[in-house]
Design a protein around this nucleic acid. Structure first.
Lengths: 117, 117
DNA sequence: CGGTATCCCGAGAGATACTG
DNA sequence: CAGTATCTCTCGGGATACCG
């Protein structure tokens, strides 16, 4: 399994942004983190709230974020197993970046600014 | 040509983050924007400074960002053509998000915090 | 409920060569 | 210099089925 996707070295490329991208790995990470900011959630909740993400991608993303230390996974051995996902301090701290991006998209919309079209 | 990749509707998915991801489209966008924050650059400069991005991907990304209104492209009909890429107001405004991510990666590093490994 | 296991496809991205 | 044109290939990710 291992870490795999290190096609380039962040240090070498000279950009911290690269490092961020590698930690998050896929775009879904942004979405999952954003979703978990609303509070801890169980797997199915996440799936419903972020329904654009498919089961497999969601698991992958969660596992990855867990390994990167952004997400906590707690298992409760109840009758049907219950699993709670929550943000770690590291994960929660990413919220400022997310909020900034939301502010940005809020301000600039999806398209060109002066495009009357 | 058109807009193509709208596999899901941002509104429907309920997340502005999705919208951001669609505007940027690929991870390279982050890197290119970050690079252009240092000032306007010509194609080859960008390629050298962000050498992890290959020619084709760089063009794609630049064209995309241009269409999304984040980047300006100016052509100077000098002897060998000169092309200058710079950020638009919209593009430059994304810098806060980038800086936030850099602060974050700076603080939390690439790995788990308490991971003694 | 909370996943894992597969199969499959398309797009992102690498490498190389060529052009106005 | 600043790209475009291909070709290939990997991998993210969709769909579906099954398991503890």
């Amino acid at each position: 399994m291992e870490d795999h996707a290190l096609k380039y070295d962040p240090e070498e490329s000279g950009s911290k942004i690269c490092e961020v991208l590698q930690i998050l790995k896929t775009k879904w990470a942004f979405l999952v983190l954003d979703e978990l900011l609303k509070g801890p959630q169980r797997f199915n909740q996440l799936q419903r709230n972020a329904s654009v993400i498919k089961t497999q991608s969601l698991t992958d993303t969660l596992r990855h974020l867990e390994r990167m230390g952004l997400v906590n996974r707690e298992v409760f051995p109840t009758v049907p197993v219950t699993v709670k996902y929550s943000l770690t301090e590291k994960g929660a701290d990413f919220q400022l970046a997310l909020k900034e991006m939301e502010r940005w998209v809020d301000k600039w919309g999806g398209r060109n600014p002066a495009s009357a079209e």
